[in-house]
């Protein structure tokens, strides 16, 4: 009881600290939005300003974000390693317990979800979305595929290898701008000489690569959890 009282007191103190720090934060905000609105499209070729930050202004950040995803996936696989190699994960999803209605509707919804995910990935520079969000949708569609076909075999090692090579490809493509513009981690095409249409080629390529990498990573996490559930 006394411990709970102390805890509530501590939380109250923390709340007041937050409250007073908020006053400083409110003075600081709303300085960068007008800059991005004015120069974002011309400098990066991306109409979606969030994508222009993720894939151009702060690309260094996004690369390490994708790297952390890769490291976490490797960690999950290493923790869940078994002596016996299982070929598939059918013992977790029992086909006889899954309702037929669910399976039938999954068959209908699955291609739509896959197409929607690819749409989000490819249109990441003009509409809301991008590689990370679209990759999550594609991974969800693959997750539904497990319910449709429980005997489907997945080779985790192959998926992780593909993911590693995709990450290397992303690093190489992000560094290519050193040879064309003299700076690392920005658009290959110089905004002074190329129009926004040409610049968007780079954004589409990078979005597709990031999207596939995220989808494969989440797929691996899902399969590792299925194999662990005994």
């Amino acid at each position: 009881m006394i411990r709970n009282g102390f805890l509530l007191l501590l939380l109250l103190v923390l709340f007041s600290v937050f409250y007073f720090s908020l006053q400083d934060l409110l003075e600081f905000q709303k300085t960068s939005a007008s800059y991005f609105l004015e120069y974002g499209l011309d400098e990066t070729g991306s109409s979606n300003l969030v994508t222009s930050i993720l894939l151009d202004y702060r690309l260094f950040d996004s690369l390490f974000e994708a790297g952390i995803l890769l490291i976490a996936v490797s960690g999950i696989i290493w923790i869940s390693k078994h002596e016996i190699e299982e070929k598939n994960a059918e013992f977790m999803i029992d086909k006889f317990k899954t309702p037929d209605l669910f399976v039938t509707f999954s068959r209908l919804v699955y291609p739509l979800m896959l197409a929607f995910g690819f749409y989000i990935i490819i249109n990441g520079h003009v509409s809301p979305g991008g590689g990370f969000q679209g990759g999550a949708i594609v991974a969800t569609a693959i997750l539904i595929l497990y319910y449709i076909d429980a005997e489907k075999e997945t080779n985790i090692k192959l998926i992780v290898t593909i993911e590693k090579y995709l990450y290397l490809t992303i690093l190489v493509i992000a560094s290519l701008s050193f040879f064309t513009r003299g700076t690392f981690f920005t658009n290959i095409f110089d905004p002074g000489t190329f129009d926004t249409g040409t610049q968007s080629i780079y954004l589409i390529v990078l979005n597709v690569l990031v999207g596939f990498k995220v989808a494969l990573g989440l797929w691996t996490i899902f399969t590792a959890f299925l194999k662990e559930g005994r």
């Binding site: 991005f36 609105l37 809301p128």
Partner: peptide, 15 residues
């Protein structure tokens, strides 16, 4: 929303 083609004069901060 912070998308140039659909933005009004004021946008939410994309950062």
């Amino acid at each position: 929303i912070p998308i140039v083609s659909r933005a009004s004069e004021v946008i939410a901060d994309p950062l």
